[in-house]
Nucleic acid binder design. Structure first.
Lengths: 208, 208
DNA sequence: CTTTATAGACCGATTGCCTGTCGGTAAAAT
DNA sequence: ATTTTACCGACAGGCAATCGGTCTATAAAG
């Protein structure tokens, strides 16, 4: 059955998304994908030049949704600053919604390469969004730092590495301590009163 | 030629070290390794149960040297606190010395899995060493934080991700700003006078 | 309105690599 | 003499990617 390229591509990406999520990138063969889609070998390579190309396309499709949602929330200036930060971060952890085993990748180790690529997107994508909000807070006299971008980069990098991976093995108790410490440290970095960012604790509740 | 297991294993690891460094883990075949060592296929799999097992052994051999050197420096209480921190970090960036293309892995993207495993070792190995020194500083009234461990975890995670990878693309100018911001942020985290950790800038000079 | 031409979606046999296995040999060690 | 262990290399099974070729839809030419 002949289909338009974009349609076929998305069919392939949907299947790849599911299989990579279940069995990991290395554990999924191109055969697995093309059989499940119901196409021939040549068709797959007509649409994608390599297996890694499929992964890259998947990540791009995914990160567009992810950062799009985050940017939308960030732009809504009616939401108070701290709330907005919380909701931006939570939009990252919840979005992609419908067809996305992709979230699995974020939290499980699974495939290192995919993980690395996604982390790169999160660090470079989320940091400017948050930095922007921090700048707004600086103008309002709520936050104070000469390095809003680098500060957020540190926060995003740390949180993404420690809270979303198995990079550090933690008991539930460890985790609670980490979260308290994290909030305390961010308060210091932004030069705000101790305890004033406590509501940020929400971010660590529902998700993960 | 029959050799003792440990000798043979190290021969294999030396070659793997070199080839993984040059061509990456995926780009290196077990054939490449066994040919260069001059042994048969079966021999390789007699000593290591899989290709990944070789990588794990390599990482362990490497991290033993790395953290050993760091711990040694950290234990020398004759060195002033800040100097000791600097030297601990620099020992990580320079050690492994002789037979080690391994350092390459630290800085280049190359292979994601190896990178991930090494990062895990650095975060979980270096953090307690530095936290210990910070605790000493707290007793002396030099530093002040209720969360020395988590604080160092953040610092190590960030520095290792941003300064040692291509996670973030930076011009030389960006890099200088990042370093200034980094020092500023660490000063805030440890609650010390602005500028009092300026000597830390050394860490970013020689290496990388 | 028909014919021809071009592009691009699709096919599947084939190539060449790669990892890991296994039965067997020979040399130390006990 | 028997066990252990370093070593061998053919082999099986699976993999990604290629390539010549087919079929179909749309557009241009007659």
């Amino acid at each position: 059955m002949r289909k338009e390229a974009e349609v076929r591509k998305n069919e392939i990406l949907d299947v790849a998304d599911e299989l990579f999520g279940k069995k990991g990138f290395d554990g999924t063969s191109t055969n697995d994908i093309l059989e499940k889609v119901g196409i021939a070998r040549g068709t797959l390579y007509h649409h994608f030049k390599s297996k890694e190309d499929i992964m890259d396309a998947l990540i791009e499709r995914y990160s567009d949704r992810l950062l799009g949602a985050a940017r939308e929330v960030a732009a809504d200036k009616t939401i108070p600053l701290v709330d907005r930060i919380i909701r931006v971060v939570m939009s990252m952890n919840l979005s992609s919604g419908s067809s996305g085993e992709m979230m699995e990748h974020l939290h499980r180790p699974q495939n290192a390469l995919m993980h690395q690529k996604i982390q790169k997107i999160i660090i470079n994508g989320l940091t400017p969004i948050l930095a922007e909000i921090i700048c707004e807070g600086i103008e309002q006299g709520v936050f104070s730092t000469p390095y809003p971008y680098e500060c957020m980069e540190m926060v995003v990098t740390y949180a993404n590495t420690i809270f979303d991976n198995d990079m550090v093995e933690m008991t539930e108790e460890d985790r609670v301590t980490r979260i308290q410490a994290f909030i305390f440290n961010v308060e210091r970095l932004l030069d705000v009163e101790k305890g004033s960012l406590m509501s940020v604790i929400q971010m660590f509740m529902s998700n993960e």
